[in-house]
Amino acid sequence: MSAPLLQVEDLRVTYRAGRGTVAAVKGVSFELARGRCLGVVGESGSGKSSLARAILRLEDGVAGRVRFDGQDVRALKRPDLLAFRRRAQMVFQDPIGSLNPRLKVGSALAEVLRVHRLAKTRGAAAAQAASWLETVGLDADYAGRFPHELSGGQRQRVNLARALCVGAEFLIADEPVSALDVSVQAQILNLLKSLQERRGITWMLIGHDLAVMRHMADEVIVMKAGAVVERGAAADVLARPVHAYTKELLAAAPNVGRALDRRGSGPAVWD
């Protein structure tokens, strides 16, 4: 058994609020093996996004330890920090907010490649950009389009390509599909899954949709008010929750089959 890619130990995030302080993350620990997907479940204010930002060193007021591939992330200095920034990245919920509206998709990717010195010439950058677009399921001719000409799902694909093109191995996806329509959400979730399987990407998936977690995550942690209240294999936790809060989340999640069963009976053909 190889060492885990990510080890988080007693991580704490504290914000200043007025004269006092607020503890957003209150001592979270976990390990994540290479090529696995950890689901972080929680509602707003649970500290899940603060946790993500603290891991990627995007947050001040952090205490505790984060080890990535054996390195102490909080102690990294250039150029090791830049290497870490390439290997560990974040994908956000709102795909349009994280793309420059004035750059064509291909130029945006090529720029990232050039900044990180991964392509020597413009031509090489453009060629690499096109091939990354194909990796995420977009035809190479999308390189010539602006973000506003793309649908939400296509933009999310571009964001993934941008993270992958500089060599991301570990991705934190913060509600990556909650702004997308149902039919497109399924396409993107399938893409995330295949990136995990084919390219060995390690994921931390943040969200509130338990059914999405069931499909994507190997393990889950459930957070409430900055602390982990339940953890385990996704299949176990979601089928047999122990903590009252996890049970409440499960009961509250809208579910077509369960709702119809409660209101009248009869089997569903799509079941």
Partner: peptide, 28 residues
Amino acid sequence: LRQPRHPYVQGLLKALPRLDGSGRLEGI
């Protein structure tokens, strides 16, 4: 919604992730 006829509605329901399911989703 138990037995939708239209292929779009059927597709929407199949695209939903399920608490008792795993693996690939059938999108549209």
